[in-house]
Design a protein around this nucleic acid. Structure first.
Lengths: 227, 227
DNA sequence: GACCGAAGTTAGCCGTAGATAACGATCCGA
DNA sequence: TCGGATCGTTATCTACGGCTAACTTCGGTC
């Protein structure tokens, strides 16, 4: 009834990549090849296996979409990854901009027992250090409505909620500017045309381009106070 | 100057097995095959590679002995294993009789950075939960002189220092009897002939056979007190 | 010293997961 | 609608690390 042979490391990586690249949408061979840093033939090859194993469905031009089983596995990997990242930062005190690779490896090798123990040790966190929600054991995660910070008009106030980016350099820059989950920010100036943004964080002003801010998601604060 | 391509998981396992099976001594193909649960040809094959890579030297009838490089790698794995076991027990609260398999997997996948962070988090423990000494970063570990508990005469007092065994059932039994590192014991009765031992731990007596005690190592307490 | 059985090796195979080279399909612009 | 550019697939190769079957070598006994 259970244990339909656990996925190999590669399969877990593919399934997770399909999940993150295409929420709802189908993902192309090329996208996967780039994301996983493998050749296109390797992708075609692996997708055929995943199809046989009922983890993906293939559509037009080899584009892949997760089945219910595939989706379940993908969310499982996301949960593992985020729990591990949280652990590495909160418990072991590693830098949040540097833990991704470690979590990337460990998510494939930590047993259910150890993962649960880690989760318990942290008292079941609901968010990772980047602000991403952690799916619960049944794979459900709270839906949130977040705005990209670059969509805010000048003068708007907001709280940083999520950092969606894999690039360490950018993350370090954001961290130095104080753009971390939970931080309160004010858009001092926003110029749609030249893409320049002036952001006020903790009393300090930072000038950034809109590309340089791509990946920072916020929850807007509707002003409800005098003064 | 550095990074001579990291060892694969298999290589790490072989090197570690050679280390644990044969302190000083050379290890045979058969022993390795049994320990690693692989076929003899697989062992022959891998030993040839390890020899090419200067990790082992092969002697009479394929028997293997670690080179200095091999020894260094092996001790590195022992260090990782013991740090991880300690972590799983002390920090995550898992049962010391159950963590071996998890440590066995993780020792191959935890990065140097994470291992150091774990070590730091625990304030650099010197012993794992079984009482085994943890080698320091340079691979040195304190030499201790321990006696097998089965070597003690009736009436002797001792402190349990090390549990050398992989079998979970036995470890659980010892744990229930209170035979854990640090426990003070007294040999109430020892019969060399029929191999029956009566051990007093924390005021309670336990009757065990000498096979049932094989793997429990103690430090003898020379009586120096009146009463 | 011949022979038997245990131990080790050789030869050839499998599956996983990657790669390249060459071919085929598709889409879009002119 | 034609033709290139882009995208995907097929065919074939590689390395790793296992496996079995069959052979050899050795150690010891009679």
């Amino acid at each position: 009834m259970k244990s339909p042979t656990p996925l190999t490391r590669s399969r877990e990586d593919y399934v997770k990549a399909i999940h993150t690249l295409g929420s709802e949408r189908a993902v192309t061979v090329g996208e996967l090849a780039r994301a996983l840093e493998v050749s296109a033939p390797s992708v075609t090859n692996m997708l055929a296996r995943l199809q046989r194993e009922r983890l993906v469905e293939l559509g037009h031009r080899g584009s892949a979409q997760l089945t219910t089983d595939g989706e379940r596995e993908a969310v499982r990997m996301v949960r593992r990854h985020r729990i591990l990242e949280t652990f590495l930062v909160k418990v072991l005190g590693l830098d949040w901009s540097e833990v991704h690779e470690d979590a990337e490896v460990l998510e494939h090798h930590v047993s259910e027992r150890v993962l649960d123990a880690i989760d318990r040790h942290m008292q079941h966190p609901t968010e990772d250090p980047h602000g991403h929600p952690i799916p619960d054991r049944r794979g459900r995660l709270p839906r949130r409505r977040l705005d990209p910070i670059t969509g805010l008009p000048a003068g708007a106030r907001a709280v940083v909620r999520e950092i969606r980016d894999g690039d360490r350099r950018r993350m370090t820059r954001w961290k130095q500017a104080g753009l971390v989950p939970g931080a309160e920010v004010r858009v001092a100036d926003a110029d749609e045309h030249d893409g320049m943004f002036e952001i006020e964080v903790g009393g300090r002003r930072h000038v950034l381009t809109s590309q340089g801010l791509d990946g920072v998601f916020v929850e807007r604060v509707r002003e409800g106070r005098a003064s």
